[in-house]
């Protein structure tokens, strides 16, 4: 007791036939979520980011209550401070890479974590992509830009949804190393979703296993 929890996630939510039920708390700032596809991993991240309102539950990250159904608290999406790297990247195709990166950076000037812009661009190796349109990027480049965009938005915590899926092994290993570096560099809570045990083992020992019910 008395030790601040990095994560406190209790929630119940039903989407169609799929019932997601989570009761989890951890002091470790970096956790992984695993489970077979369709079990609700992305739904869990969407609940945390505020894109889905769970039926009941309580979500606390880094000591900040984001959602509490009994207290009728639900912080708005834009104020939750999620650095969400979507599985499908979701870059804005009508904006160049530089404008994609600046999108969230401009909106949350009150920097929660002092991100070193230059260093992140260098770590992710995207310096040469800034003038490009997202449609001209390769799969690996899109992933790296998506990670940078989330980190640049001065997040209070990071949500990474299978950031390495559909990448070749070499590229995946490279990006995983970057994510490890980033995690240490900006020091904010991180939830990493993956169904690859090798990936999660490199990042954390604390694993939330979702099982179908």
């Amino acid at each position: 007791m008395g030790v601040a929890m990095s994560f406190e996630i209790v929630l119940n939510h039903t989407v169609g036939d799929c019932r997601l039920s989570v009761d989890f708390a951890s002091q470790v700032p970096r956790i992984a979520v695993t489970g077979p596809s369709g079990v609700g991993k992305t739904t869990l991240l969407n609940c945390i980011a505020g894109l889905i309102t769970p039926e009941t539950g309580k979500i606390v990250i880094g000591g900040r209550v984001l959602f509490d159904s009994t207290e009728r608290i639900s912080i708005r999406v834009e104020q939750r401070g999620a650095g969400y790297v979507f599985q499908d990247a979701r870059l804005f195709n009508h904006l160049r890479v530089a404008a994609n990166l600046a999108y969230g950076e401009r909106l949350r000037q009150a920097g929660h974590s002092g991100v070193d812009r230059e260093r992140i661009i260098e770590t992710l190796g995207i310096g040469s992509l800034l003038d490009r349109w997202p449609a001209s990027l390769s799969g690996g480049e899109i992933r790296r830009v998506a990670i940078a965009r989330a980190v640049f938005a001065h997040p209070r915590f990071l949500l990474l949804d299978e950031p390495l899926s559909s990448l070749d092994q070499e590229r995946a290993a490279e990006i995983l190393t970057m994510i490890e570096h980033l995690g240490t560099a900006i020091g904010i809570p991180m939830i990493y979703v993956s169904h690859q045990p090798e990936e999660t083992a490199r990042l954390t020992d604390t694993i939330l296993q979702l099982a179908p019910r």
Binding site: G50, E78, Y103, L107
Partner: peptide, 23 residues
């Protein structure tokens, strides 16, 4: 318009109105 893009903008700190204007 892909609504997932609007959702992405919201997570980056955009209000509904700002996301409408920019996306």
């Amino acid at each position: 318009v892909d609504r997932r893009l609007v959702a992405a903008a919201r997570t980056l700190g955009a209000s509904r109105w700002y996301a409408f204007r920019t996306i």
